[in-house]
Amino acid sequence: MEYRIEVEDLNVYFDELHILKDINLKIPKNAVTSLIGPSGCGKSTFIRTLNRMNDMISTFKMDGTVLLDGEDIYNPKVDVVELRKKVGMVFQKPNPFPKSIFDNVAYGLRVHGINDKDFLAQKVEESLKEAALWDEVKNILDKSAMGLSGGQQQRLCIARTIAVEPEVILMDEPCSALDPISTTKIEDLIHKLKKDFTIIIVTHNMQQATRVSKHTAFFLHGEIVESGLTEKIFIEPEDKRTEDYITGRFG
């Protein structure tokens, strides 16, 4: 199997707090990996380590290695801007910019210096189509994204992310603020996107993990208790704690 991301002996601290402990995890290419576990177990901190969003927190410290396509992303020579182009992120709460729908999708391209109008228009259309939002917004591209529904906003955020053609898309509970119908749409979208992207999704919803992901890692108290094929984790977990969690005995 080919891996896009390989995490070795990762430890993360915020001040004295030891948030992630000896994490080892390999993320397969062009597949969906779910991260499950109770709140506060370090899942979000983990995915924010993968695009270096934790760098902005002054108390953040880490050791270990995170390899993207074999290259250490914490190497001092790495350009964080380039890294975040390759590793996109969709947040828990839809966070479109207070700009037009078009400008939202074109944003990433523009900050990377692309201003060619025809190219932008074509790329915006492609991305919105890929995010299954084009038909709903093609006539209101100049309207503010803030007027869209929550589910539409989240798909817009996905379109915005794929417009810069990342290799990896990190999704931090992308459906937790959405209704069931919007959730289904996002899950369908994830199925479609996994052909072209490596997707890592944090979710509190067990069914969602089984529906969308091929691989799953179970986090507990900052450690990975168990990881592997999703069906194996959910049908015959090796660890008692995994079984307790997925059967709803805690968490």
């Binding site: 695009n51 969003m53 902005m56 801007v81 380039e82 890294l83 975040r84 182009k85 996109g88 992120m89 947040f91 709460k93 966070n95 479109p96 910019f97 207070p98 700009k99 944003y107 990433g108 523009r110 900050v111 990377h112 955020c157 915005r160 992310t161 810069v164």
Partner: peptide, 25 residues
Amino acid sequence: KSYAEGSLALGATKWQTIYRVVIPA
């Protein structure tokens, strides 16, 4: 703050984030 996070996650620099997202907002 989520606007700035979204912008940084797309690979924008801090200054790009400030003048393209924060100031207009």
